[in-house]
């Protein structure tokens, strides 16, 4: 299954940086060295085995934007699964940005009416004071510009976990059986006496699905934990690769919880978190090993995993 993902936005807004951070495990500090994207860079990324993301990273310079909207219009806007439009929060050309954005929405409406639209207010790290207010203003502005189109807006930065939150949410819309996965993860959490189970895609460490449990209200866990976990593991994977090692598995018995992060299927990693002090990492690892076949089977049944 192939899904086309359009990555749009003015030149310099940060499209290629985020793509390289999420899909190539490059650190944020390396993005300054990226060259400008000329026209469209097409990339196929295997995401969860059967699902292939066809990323269209569109240059964004005026000349290209104009041609996307005219002569290349149908090529660009047909068969789109998701359009991501990136706005540099500090841009001085918001009006021009919005104009192109509205034209793109129109192109989508015409050729891919079912496509999901995500708007990223990017480089939020550059906003020094009152981030929520700045973001709120931009959000409203974008909502107005979008008219009755169904949009989702995120504030993002390559320097913190916010990018993972946005992209997890984006890929979530592309996974057909997310609800089924969630159900199985919930059962698995119960078997392990775990408070929570999280499933990650293997290379990006984006969150694919999580267990839903009744105990969640009791624990009141940090609301940013999923994207923070993605960010932490990605950073550590990068550290490992610098010494030509490959991250494989992590177990922790910390003051507040016990957790294991291990391979689930060929394309996924799972993290199991337990708060019950009697649960040991060895038991969790054993449970994961035993659940592997079941989850591989889900994949065999034609589910995306």
């Amino acid at each position: 299954m192939k899904k086309k993902v359009l990555l749009m936005g003015a030149s310099g807004s940060g499209k290629t940086s985020m793509r390289s951070l999420i899909f190539s495990n490059n650190p944020a500090s390396m993005t300054a060295r990226l060259g400008a994207t000329i026209d469209v860079e097409q990339n196929h990324v295997r995401f969860l085995g059967d699902l292939i993301l066809n990323l269209w990273d569109c240059g964004g310079q005026d000349a290209f934007m104009d041609s996307y909207l005219t002569t290349q219009r149908s090529t660009i806007f047909q068969h789109v699964g998701v359009m991501i439009y990136v706005f540099d929060v500090e841009t001085r050309e918001m009006n021009k940005d919005l104009e192109y954005y509205r034209d793109c929405l129109e192109g989508l409406r015409q050729y891919s009416p079912g496509a999901a639209v995500f708007l990223l207010v990017h480089k939020m790290d550059l906003v020094r004071e009152n981030k929520p207010v700045t973001f709120g203003k931009k959000h409203k502005e974008l909502q107005v510009a979008s008219g009755d189109a169904d949009i989702t807006v995120f504030g993002t930065s390559i320097y913190d976990e916010s990018l993972y939150k946005a992209w997890s949410s984006i890929v979530h819309t592309l996974i057909p059986n997310a609800a089924v996965l969630s159900k199985h993860l919930t059962t698995f959490a119960e078997v392990c006496s775990a408070s929570e189970v999280i499933l990650f895609e293997r290379t990006t460490f984006l969150v694919i699905a999580t267990s839903t449990s009744a105990t969640e209200d009791i624990h009141k866990l940090d609301g940013t934990r999923y994207e923070r976990t993605s960010e932490l593991i990605k950073a550590f994977k990068h550290s490992c690769s610098r010494v030509r090692e490959e991250f494989h598995c992590l177990e922790m018995e910390l003051p507040d919880f016990t957790a294991v992060l291990d391979e689930m299927t060929r394309n996924t990693y799972v993290m199991v978190i337990a708060h019950d002090p009697s649960i040991e990492t060895g038991a969790l690892r054993l449970n994961i090993r035993m659940a592997r076949r079941k989850f591989e089977q889900l994949q065999g049944d034609g589910h995306v995993l």
């Binding site: 408070s195 929570e196 009791i218 624990h219 009141k220 866990l221 940090d222 934990r225 923070r228 976990t229 932490l232 922790m252 910390l254 003051p255 507040d256 919880f257 957790a259 978190i273 708060h275 019950d276 002090p277």
Partner: peptide, 12 residues
């Protein structure tokens, strides 16, 4: 960084 991330408000 992981330490406080999954801290439960009500852990036994």
């Amino acid at each position: 960084s992981f330490g406080p991330l999954y801290k439960s408000a009500s852990a036994s």
